[in-house]
């Protein structure tokens, strides 16, 4: 049996599961749609990873990240729970030696991470605008009836990218429609959109950051070759897209788990077969004070094992 480490990254759009070995090589990876059902998606995904490598690899540590990291940590029995910014930085540092800038664009958010000498020194994440993230690209691909996988290739075929307003997703869309109604061809519009998104990214999250090479571009959107080309053009350096760019968050979580269990010497992993376990959540409104917190209750096979969501800690503690 080989020793492996499991990383699970549950984001707004995609759920990524990877198993890495002691050296950090990826043994198995899944890139799934969350479809608004994080618990079922992770249960199903883990089961399929288990079928693939379960009898060859023994999981020695588990890490979770992404916006559902706390919920999922309960389900898989995580040894470490980490925010996705740190997880992405850890993964990129492991894959590209000496990385100084990380561009990460996911389903609903985009971030920039600045590293110096292997240490994160600055980062930024979009706060109030989702223009330029995966969801918007998905929506536009859908509108133009182009499979998202081919979306970027259209941009590469463009001869004269048209100028699209990238400040806001709604404005970008109406600008695209206006240009299309005037007769510009689809390739030029898509290339224009890629350039607009890069401009918006650099102006929004990239503002005031010192961008030095090597620059790594990761996240689901890095699969879009049009955007890669637009970044290269804007930055004047070749951005590096790692092979496993879509699951870097999960790789980061797995690497962090490897570190975590070195200290504890054991794992809380519940096994691949959690499909059989019945997980359920419900919630109620606490009337203890005017805050009216919505408290979430988490059940495993009918047994209440955790509560969260209360600001004061009253309910959280009563389960201990």
């Amino acid at each position: 049996m080989k020793t492996g480490y499991l990383g699970v990254d549950v984001g707004s759009v995609s759920t990524n599961i990877v198993v890495i070995d002691e050296k950090g090589e990826v043994l198995s990876a899944r890139y799934l749609r969350t479809n608004g059902k994080p618990i079922e998606t992770v249960q199903g995904g883990l089961f399929s990873v288990g079928e693939e490598i379960g009898n060859k690899v023994e999981i020695a540590g588990v890490g979770t990240t992404g916006s559902a990291r706390y919920l999922i940590s309960m389900i898989v029995g995580a040894d470490i729970v980490k925010n996705e910014i740190t997880a992405h930085a850890v993964a990129a540092s492991a894959v590209v030696e000496g990385v100084q800038t990380i561009i990460e664009i996911g389903g609903q958010d985009s971030k920039i991470i600045i590293l110096r000498n292997g240490i994160v020194t600055d980062f930024a994440m979009n706060t109030v605008c989702a223009a330029g993230t995966g969801s918007f690209l998905d929506q536009q691909a859908n509108r133009l009836c182009i499979p998202i996988e081919e979306f970027g290739d259209y941009a590469l075929k463009a001869k004269n990218p048209v100028r699209i307003a990238g400040r806001c997703a709604v404005f970008a869309e109406s600008d695209m429609i206006h240009k299309q109604q005037l007769g510009y061809n689809t390739e030029d519009i898509i290339a224009g959109l890629c350039e607009a998104l890069v401009r918006n990214y650099m102006n929004n999250v990239g503002k005031g950051k010192e961008i030095l090479p090597p620059v790594v571009f990761q996240g689901g959107v890095a699969a879009n070759r049009g955007l890669v080309a637009a970044f290269n053009k804007y930055l004047g350096v070749e951005v590096i897209v790692p092979k496993e760019h879509g699951v870097m968050g999960a790789i980061g979580a797995a690497l962090l788990a490897r570190e975590a269990v070195k200290k504890t010497g054991k794992t809380n992993f519940k096994g691949f077969n959690i499909k059989e376990i019945n997980f359920k959540t419900d919630s109620f409104e606490c009337n203890g004070c005017s805050n009216a917190c919505e408290v979430v209750q988490f059940y495993e096979n009918g047994e209440l094992i955790a509560r969260w969501g209360d600001r004061c800690g009253k309910w959280e503690m009563s389960t201990r």
């Binding site: 980490k82 240490i119 994160v120 600055d122 980062f123 994440m125 706060t127």
Partner: peptide, 17 residues
């Protein structure tokens, strides 16, 4: 959740420093 993520990452950064 969004604020929490950013603060956690910021604290990681400060601790590493």
């Amino acid at each position: 959740a969004g604020v929490q993520t950013r603060l956690e990452a910021f604290i990681d950064l400060l601790e590493k420093r």
